[in-house]
């Protein structure tokens, strides 16, 4: 039986076949990955179409997939394999998650939008993969007022440029800060103090 999420995804697939890269409803949360060229068109339609009516941009964040599945801790066990006790082995699950795009430099970053519809009381996650060489997506600040600060934050933390943003500058870090701290290649304790020693 198709759920409401499946129905929503099917509707979007039918309407924007040229923009959608992938879609899934992992753990019951409908998610659609789209090309960045189609972002403005899809977002406008999501907001204005009464069948979807996503009037709240709940969250907008970035993600850096540079080291996805490659961290040292991702290795299944220590070098001397010590099997997990039976009660700790993962529960089998039929549900599989796929990102939908390869984890390469072409799709290194992702801008993730969480929409909420007050009319239908449902959510949708929209993801836009962004390349390392040209990290930019169109700004949604003209559609939702909330996008303004969230986009500034994503620029600050990931260095993703939002084209058409009215005031794209750092928001959490200071202007003299070099680099974008939430990128995976920014070391966690690389400090850039304004005053005082680097320690």
């Amino acid at each position: 039986m198709p759920t409401a999420s499946d129905e929503l995804i099917a509707r979007l697939r039918a309407r924007f076949p040229q923009h959608i890269l992938a879609a899934h409803a992992y753990r019951g949360q409908p998610t659609v990955t789209i090309r960045r060229e189609g972002l403005l068109e899809v977002a406008t339609a999501l907001r204005d179409d009464p069948a979807t009516a996503f009037d709240v941009l709940m969250d907008l964040c970035g993600a850096d997939y540079a080291w996805f599945g490659m961290s040292q801790a991702s290795a299944p066990t220590l070098r001397t394999p010590s099997p997990l006790p039976y009660f700790m082995s993962p529960a089998p699950s039929a549900e599989r998650w796929e990102r939908g795009v390869p984890h390469d430099a072409q799709h290194r970053f992702e801008v993730v939008y969480h929409f909420y519809s007050t009319a239908h009381r449902r959510r949708l996650r929209l993801k836009v993969p962004v390349s390392f060489a040209e990290p930019s997506v169109p700004s949604l600040a003209g559609l939702w007022a909330a996008a303004n600060w969230y986009e500034r934050e994503v620029w600050d933390m990931f260095g993703v440029v939002f084209e058409g943003h009215p005031n794209l500058k750092r928001i959490l870090m200071y202007e003299s800060f070099q680099g974008h701290p939430l990128r995976k290649d920014y070391p966690i304790n690389k400090r850039q103090p304004i005053i005082g020693p680097v320690n």
């Binding site: 870090m173 701290p181 070391p187 304790n189 690389k190 400090r191 850039q192 103090p193 005082g196």
Partner: peptide, 13 residues
């Protein structure tokens, strides 16, 4: 908070 954002003790300033 041993990270890029925080001062490691105000006695440094």
């Amino acid at each position: 908070y041993d990270n890029y954002a925080t001062v490691q003790g105000i006695d440094t300033v």
